[in-house]
């Protein structure tokens, strides 16, 4: 069984399209609504997704881990992480899954930099992402070309071992860290990212560093 976990927060405009597109590539779509104030839940349910609801807004990392817990409880073979804002392309899913199986890896990380389909903003590409890679090195995680990509596929082994404790955007670095910690085999795969919004800025980056630092002092 192959399921997609879609963390969503105020995505009523795009979630229906994302879910219906995803259902062509996966067996089931789990939308984890992170206390949206709009009709994300209604739109996702209508388009055929199973919706899990957070009663409090916790962050993308927390929503992904809720999806993980659900996936563990029903015993899936593969889990796809896919953003709810339609920035990823469903055409990348089948070849990515194929690549994961073929390379016998436990986890596949999407990358914007293995081909030139993604139009990454200049500042992000040449300033923020290199800083991100440097910070990831400081925290001793696996070395990837794209340090903050939300497109991932995990097999059952990775799903059992990767338990996200970072509620916010620091989960991306945490997942890379857990991949190294548990000695999981990983592979990078080119995916296309369409920018509807800018995404993480400098403030967001600083928050990630703060969260990762404080996380080191918690079990």
């Amino acid at each position: 069984m192959f399921i997609a976990i879609v963390p969503a927060y105020n995505e009523e405009k795009r979630i229906a399209q994302v879910v219906s597109d995803l259902l062509k590539s996966v067996d089931s779509v789990i939308v984890v609504d992170d206390k949206s104030r709009d009709n994300t839940i209604g739109e996702a349910t209508q388009s055929g997704a199973m919706v899990l609801q957070h009663k409090i807004n916790l962050g993308q990392g927390a929503a992904l881990e809720t999806g993980h817990e659900y996936a563990r409880s029903i015993g899936v073979d593969y889990v796809l992480h896919f953003d709810g804002d339609g920035q990823f392309c469903v055409e990348d899913i089948a070849p990515a899954l194929e690549k994961l199986k073929e390379s016998k890896a436990d986890i596949l990380f999407g990358s914007r930099f293995l081909d030139n389909r993604s139009k990454v903003p200049f500042l992000k590409k040449y300033f923020l992402l290199p800083i991100g890679r440097f910070i990831n090195k400081l925290f001793g995680v696996v070395s990837l070309k794209d340090s903050q990509n939300g497109f991932r596929i995990l097999n059952r082994n990775a799903l059992e071992k990767i338990k996200i404790t970072q509620n916010g955007m620091a989960h991306a670095t945490e997942i890379m860290g857990l991949t190294r910690k548990h000695n999981l085999n990983y592979v990078e795969f080119p995916v296309k990212v369409i920018y509807h919004e800018y995404g993480q800025g400098i403030g967001g980056g600083l928050k990630i560093v703060k969260d990762l630092f404080l996380g080191k002092f918690l079990k």
């Binding site: 984890v32 899990l52 009663k55 409090i56 916790l58 927390a62 881990e65 809720t66 817990e69 509620n167």
Partner: peptide, 11 residues
């Protein structure tokens, strides 16, 4: 702790 509570509730 809060995350655990919210997660359990959602599942």
């Amino acid at each position: 702790d809060l995350t655990d509570v919210v997660r359990k509730e959602s599942l």
